[in-house]
Amino acid sequence: HNLTITQGKLFFHYNPKLCLSEIHKMEEVSGTKGRQERNDIALKTNGDQASCENELLKFSYIRTSFDKILLRWEPYWPPDFRDLLGFMLFYKEAPYQNVTEFDGQDACGSNSWTVVDIDPPLRSNDPKSQNHPGWLMRGLKPWTQYAIFVKTLVTFSDERRTYGAKSDIIYVQTDATNPSVPLDPISVSNSSSQIILKWKPPSDPNGNITHYLVFWERQAEDSELFELDYCLKGLKLPSRTWSPPFESEDSQKHNQSEYEDSAGECCSCPKTDSQILKELEESSFRKTFEDYLHNVVFVPRKTSSGTGAEDPRPSRKRRSLGDVGNVTVAVPTVAAFPNTSSTSVPTSPEEHRPFEKVVNKESLVISGLRHFTGYRIELQACNQDTPEERCSVAAYVSARTMPEAKADDIVGPVTHEIFENNVVHLMWQEPKEPNGLIVLYEVSYRRYGDEELHLCVSRKHFALERGCRLRGLSPGNYSVRIRATSLAGNGSWTEPTYFYVTDYLDVPSNIA
C-alpha cells in the first residue's frame, strides 16, 4: 500500500525493539523526510534493546553428524571492536523451508527459537588472519532439518551509529543413524509349514526405512522333555500350542467401542483428552525405555581390526524358502538304536541362519518350516543398504507352526516275539517326523474274553527296548493296539495285532 503524509511529521519514542533503520525507511515511504526535528525521533529510546544489523554474515563451514552440527561463519568486528559482546545463534526444527525470524513471537518477546549466546573469538592483530567464530550444536535429532541463523550482539553506541551483522536463515539436516526397533511384532501360524509375521514401523526411523531383515531359527525343545518319565503317576503330560491366527481386521481397528449394538453396526467412541494424553505418555515412556535398553543392555560386537582377528559373527547367506525346513542338525536320541526319531534339535552355532529381506511392506510369510516346531524370529529395521547396512537392534518374537495331521501315527506293522515265561516283546517304529517329539506310547492289549488293559511306555523305555515287553501273560489269544502321544496330543491307534500265548508248562520236552 502507498502511504503519503502531505502535512505533519513523524514522532517515535520509547520503541526499544524498533531499529532506527526501520524508522528511516518509514520517513522515505511516507514522504516526511526532512520535516522531523532532532528530538522527534529519539536516538536513545528507539532500538536500544534490539540488534540492528546492516551487514550480512556468511557461514564459512558446515559439518553434520547424526546428532551434531558444527558451524563456522566469517569474522565480524565493528569499528570499535570492544562493542562486540558476542553472537546469538538461533535454531529450531523446520520440516519445511518457510521459516521466518519472527515465527511464534508474542507480545512478551518470546519466540519459538532456541538461542545460544556465543563469546567472540580472540581478536588477531592481523586483519587478514582473524579467527572464524563458530559453535557445535549438540543433542539434535537424527535425520531432522533445522533452520539456523546467527547475528551479532553489540553494545549501545553513544554516537548512535547503527552497526551489526546478521546471516540469512539456512537449512541444515542432520545425518541418518540406526533406527529404533520395529514396533509390535506379531507372529502367527496359518499352516503346519508357515508363519505369518506382521509389525509396525519404528517410532524413530532416523532416516528413510529402506528394508527390513527377518531372521528365523528353529528352537530346540526343553531338555526336561527328553529326561522326564511322563508315565509316572502324578506327572502331567506336557503340551505345546501353536500360535493362533490373526483376529479379523475389524476387531483390530483402534479407537473402536468394545460393545456392539445388537441391531447392527455401531460407531466408534472418540477417545477423551485424558485417554489420548495417557497414550502419549505411555508411548514416550516406551521410547525412553527402549533407548535405555539399547544403550545399557546391548553391547556392540567388536569388529575385526587390522591384526587379522576374525569377526566372530557368522556370515549372512541367503537361502531359498524351500530350504528352511531342514535348518537344524538332527541327532538321534540314543545312538545305539537307529530307529528312534531325530527330534532332539541342538543347533550348531556355526550354522548360517536363513533370512529374508523385506522391502516396502511390514509383513512376511515364512514358508518351508517344520510342522509343530518353535521358531525364534528376529526382526531388524534398516535405513541404508549400501555401502553397508545400517540397521536397528533386533526385536524378537516366537511362534510355533501348526501340527501336521497323521504325523504322530505309527507307520509300519507292530511285530512281536514270544519268549519263555510268557513274555512277549512288542516292537514298532517311532514316527519319523512327529509333531514336536514323542513323549510316550500307549499300549492297549486284551486277552479274548477279558477286559482291555493299558500300559504306558516312556520315551526312554522305548529307546532301550525298541518297544516294550509284556510279562506274566496268561495263555490265550491276544490283540494289541499302540498309539503315540506327542507334544500336540495323541496320534491314531494302530491296526490290531494278534498273537497267541501258550502255557509254557505244557511245552513238550526233548528229553527222552
Score class of each variant (00 low, 15 high):
D204T: 04
P205T: 02
N206W: 14
G207S: 15
N208C: 11
I209L: 10
H211A: 06
E217P: 06
E217C: 14
R218F: 04
E221V: 03
S223M: 14
L225Q: 10
L228T: 08
L228K: 06
D229E: 06
Y230N: 13
Y230R: 11
L232R: 14
K233N: 13
L235R: 09
K236W: 10
K236C: 11
K236N: 12
K236V: 11
P238T: 09
P238M: 08
P238N: 13
T241G: 09
S243H: 11
S243E: 04
F246A: 04
E247W: 08
E247Y: 12
E249W: 08
D250V: 06
S251H: 15
Q252E: 12
H254E: 04
S257F: 14
S257K: 07
E258V: 05
Y259K: 13
E260M: 14
D261T: 07
S262K: 05
S262M: 13
S262P: 10
C266M: 06
C266Y: 15
C267V: 13
C267T: 09
S268M: 13
S268N: 14
C269I: 12
C269K: 03
S274M: 02
I276R: 06
L277Q: 12
E279C: 01
E279D: 10
E281T: 10
E281W: 02
E281A: 12
E282C: 09
S283K: 05
S284F: 09
T288W: 13
F289Q: 05
D291I: 08
D291V: 10
V296R: 08
V297T: 08
V297M: 12
V299R: 15
K302G: 01
K302F: 12
K302L: 10
S305V: 10
G306D: 11
G306P: 13
G306W: 07
T307R: 12
T307K: 11
E310Y: 14
P312A: 15
S315Y: 11
K317A: 11
K317T: 10
R318F: 13
R319M: 08
G322L: 11
G322W: 12
D323T: 14
V324N: 14
V329S: 10
V331T: 14
V331L: 13
V334E: 04
A335E: 13
P338Q: 12
N339A: 09
N339F: 07
S341A: 04
S341G: 08
S344W: 14
V345Y: 12
T347V: 03
S348A: 14
H352T: 05
R353G: 15
P354M: 12
F355K: 13
F355L: 10
K357G: 04
K361E: 09
E362G: 04
E362D: 15
I366M: 10
I366P: 00
G368I: 04
H371R: 12
H371A: 13
H371K: 03
F372E: 03
Y375W: 02
R376A: 04
I377F: 05
Q380T: 15
Q384M: 11
Q384W: 14
P387W: 12
E389I: 08
R390S: 12
C391L: 01
S392P: 04
A394D: 08
V397M: 13
V397K: 13
T401G: 00
T401E: 00
M402K: 15
P403V: 09
K406E: 15
V414W: 01
V414Q: 02
E417N: 04
N421H: 08
N422G: 05
V423D: 15
V423S: 07
V424C: 08
H425K: 11
W428V: 00
E433K: 15
E433R: 12
P434D: 00
N435G: 01
G436N: 02
L437R: 12
I438K: 01
Y441L: 01
E442L: 13
V443G: 00
Y445K: 01
Y445I: 02
H454D: 15
S458N: 06
K460H: 09
F462T: 03
F462R: 07
L464D: 06
E465N: 09
L470N: 01
L470T: 02
G472R: 06
S474E: 15
Y478F: 05
S479K: 02
R481L: 09
R483Q: 04
T485G: 02
S486G: 13
G489V: 10
N490C: 11
S492G: 12
T494I: 04
E495M: 05
E495K: 09
F499K: 01
F499W: 02
Y500C: 15
Y500K: 11
T502F: 05
T502G: 10
D503V: 13
D503P: 15
Y504E: 15
V507Q: 15
N510S: 06
N510Q: 08
